[in-house]
């Protein structure tokens, strides 16, 4: 579904991503894990169209098409229409808009009111707490609720590929497992997910496939299960 070959990203003089390859098949949860500055966010932002002037190939095959489409150089708003949604790092919900308006914004590219209403119910079902707070301003929500809103908002475009950048950031451990349970649930209902995480344990526990990034390169890859038991990974990311 998504095929990244030899992706290179520079910020000014800094070579942030050094030729990585990632591939995602339909229905999978794929995770990129690694420390701060490893190039995870840059990669996901390049897919979303937020990074200009990277080198390499990003190919995307949507449901309707047989041939992969080259994503390089497209704008973020095109990506959403092509079926790729990103829930950005730090949640970035709109604090002055209500929960419902935030969700409506997520559905911006879509026309059918009935479908939007249907998907809104779906999101409220996933996160009942959002429904309770539907007319509250986004800024009044707790961190966990804001994260749920950010995930829900990304779902509102009915993406084929859902990308989540650090959904565990700043959340209490209990909330992390709550959010990750829902991410697993969304995947079991058929959604393909690309997950960028520093919380390696949470990410590996639900991922089918994982890539470990260090200073811009992939140093390890395998199934979530394999990496969870890999001594190197345990040493470096899971606290021994």
């Amino acid at each position: 579904m998504l095929d990244i070959q030899n992706l290179n990203i520079w910020y000014g003089g800094i070579h942030a991503v050094k030729g990585i390859d990632v591939s995602i098949r339909r229905g999978e949860i794929v995770t990129l894990i690694g420390a701060n500055g490893a190039g995870k966010s840059s990669t996901i932002r390049a897919i979303a169209g937020l990074v200009r002037g990277f080198k390499g190939f990003i190919g995307y095959t949507s449901d309707q098409e047989k041939q992969p489409v080259r994503l390089n150089g497209r704008r973020p708003e095109e990506m959403v229409r092509m079926g790729i949604a990103l829930s950005p790092e730090g949640r970035r919900i709109l604090p002055h808009l209500t929960v419902e308006e935030n969700l409506r914004l997520g559905a911006y590219t879509r026309g059918s009111r009935a479908e939007i209403a249907y998907d809104m119910d779906y999101v409220y079902n996933l996160f009942p707490r959002l429904q309770e707070r539907r007319s509250q301003k986004g800024g009044t929500l707790s961190g966990g609720e804001q994260q749920m809103l950010a995930v829900g908002r990304a779902l509102m475009s009915r993406p084929e590929l859902l990308m989540l950048d650090e959904p565990s950031l700043g959340l209490a451990p209990m909330l992390v497992s709550e959010v990750f349970n829902v991410i697993g649930e969304i995947n079991r209902q058929g959604k393909t997910i690309l997950l960028v995480e520093q919380n390696a344990f949470a990410a590996l526990s639900i991922a089918h496939k994982a890539y470990v990034l260090e200073v811009g390169s992939v140093v390890l890859q395998g199934t979530g299960e394999e990496l969870l038991h890999n001594p190197q990974v345990r040493e470096a990311y899971l606290g021994g």
């Binding site: 704008r75 973020p76 708003e77 959403v80 949604a85 950005p88 709109l94 911006y108 590219t109 475009s157």
Partner: peptide, 13 residues
Amino acid sequence: HDIETTRLMGVSV
């Protein structure tokens, strides 16, 4: 409030 996030929602800013 946030141009980048708005673009991520598919809005042609």
